[in-house]
């Protein structure tokens, strides 16, 4: 409620400032002036409604997840195994599985994506091939995640024979976040001023030395931001691991990269669609959703923090 008041206050101030400016500069007849004023007021009101609607959606999502899940989330919930056919206990194996999958995805996507971005930015500037590749990458980013899941099933699970495993899931998630990492890295690399490259070349540095010691270190905060946001994405995706990595329940910790794992998003999905005790399971699903939400928010927060810190460095 307090937030709403604050937004209204800002809004009024903005409106008054606009109003004052137009009053000072333009002299028009009182009638048409009043009309314009009314139209402006109406316009601003409309915009305000839009903001309110957005906040309402966001707020209600957070509210319902909190309301449904906050009761079950305890330290034990985070550290215990599920018990009694998923009606009691915790989500520890799912957390662990999500950790493995995300780590695996970043391990796959970071070197690949960074190498790709470096090549596109530093070796083929402004060429036709570059544009073609860029369009390709953007399209890759638009592919629905379930298609990645099917691709993973066909290629990693079946063709390479990795089976339903951490490895297949990591590779699939890796490909999913690849476009994000490439474009974030590309942006970060392009933001490095050309004058630094020239300074390095003029000292007799090779392209590779310049990239390794000047360009990439300078772009690192931007690249990291992209990576962290991708981690958030990889941690939250369900469809890509549906056929490639996730299991409803495993008896043991994953033994090798070729084991199936439980994972948070799939755990939520499974609790809501499978099993025999929907009432108890729903509560746990809400709890898991809350954990996932907080996890992703924390990860994104870290990205914002890094970016902010970097900005204050260079300012």
């Amino acid at each position: 409620m307090r937030r709403k008041i604050c937004v209204t206050g800002v809004f009024r101030k903005l409106f008054e400032r606009t109003f004052a400016r137009s009053a000072g500069n333009v002299s028009v007849s009182a009638g048409s002036y009043r009309n314009k004023q009314a139209a402006q007021k109406a316009g601003f009101f409309l915009l305000f409604c839009c903001i309110l609607a957005t906040l309402l959606f966001l707020g209600s999502i957070v509210y319902f997840i909190f309301a449904g899940g906050s009761k079950v989330v305890t330290w034990g919930f985070l550290t215990q195994w599920p018990r009694n056919a998923m009606t009691e206990g915790g989500i520890f194996p799912a957390l662990l599985g999500t950790f493995y999958l995300t780590l695996g995805a970043v391990t796959v996507a970071l070197p690949l994506g960074l190498a790709c971005a470096v090549y596109l930015c530093e070796y083929t500037p402004g060429s036709l091939a570059l544009n073609a590749i860029r369009i390709g990458i953007n399209n890759l980013a638009g592919v629905p995640s379930v298609v990645f899941g099917l691709f993973g099933l066909a290629v990693f699970v079946k063709f390479f024979g990795f089976g339903v495993s951490v490895l297949s899931g990591s590779l699939t998630l890796g490909i999913l976040i690849l476009p994000g990492i490439i474009s974030a890295s590309q942006e970060a690399l392009m933001a490095v001023p050309n004058s630094l490259r020239e300074a390095s070349f003029a000292l007799g540095a090779t392209r590779w030395q310049t990239i390794k010691k000047i360009v990439v270190p300078q772009a690192l905060p931007g690249i990291l931001t992209g990576v962290i946001l991708s981690i958030g994405r990889a941690a939250g995706e369900t469809a890509p691991i549906l056929f490639t990595a996730a299991a409803f329940y495993t008896r043991r910790y994953p033994q090798s990269p070729f084991s199936e794992v439980m994972a948070l998003p799939y755990h939520i999905y499974a609790l809501m669609t499978e099993g025999t005790h929907p009432r108890q399971q729903t509560v746990i699903a809400y709890g898991s959703a809350l954990v996932l939400l907080i996890l992703v928010l924390l990860i994104s927060g870290t990205a914002v923090f890094i970016r902010q810190r970097h900005r204050s460095y260079n300012g």
């Binding site: 300074a199 390095s200 003029a202 000292l203 540095a205």
Partner: peptide, 26 residues
């Protein structure tokens, strides 16, 4: 053939490292 540019373009590193860089790459 070294070059000094129009806008000063030191690397965003320490004074010492700025000079060390050229020596190291050589």
């Amino acid at each position: 053939v070294g070059m000094v540019f129009q806008k000063p373009n030191p690397f965003p590193k320490s004074i010492f490292e700025n000079i060390k860089y050229g020596l190291e790459i050589n």
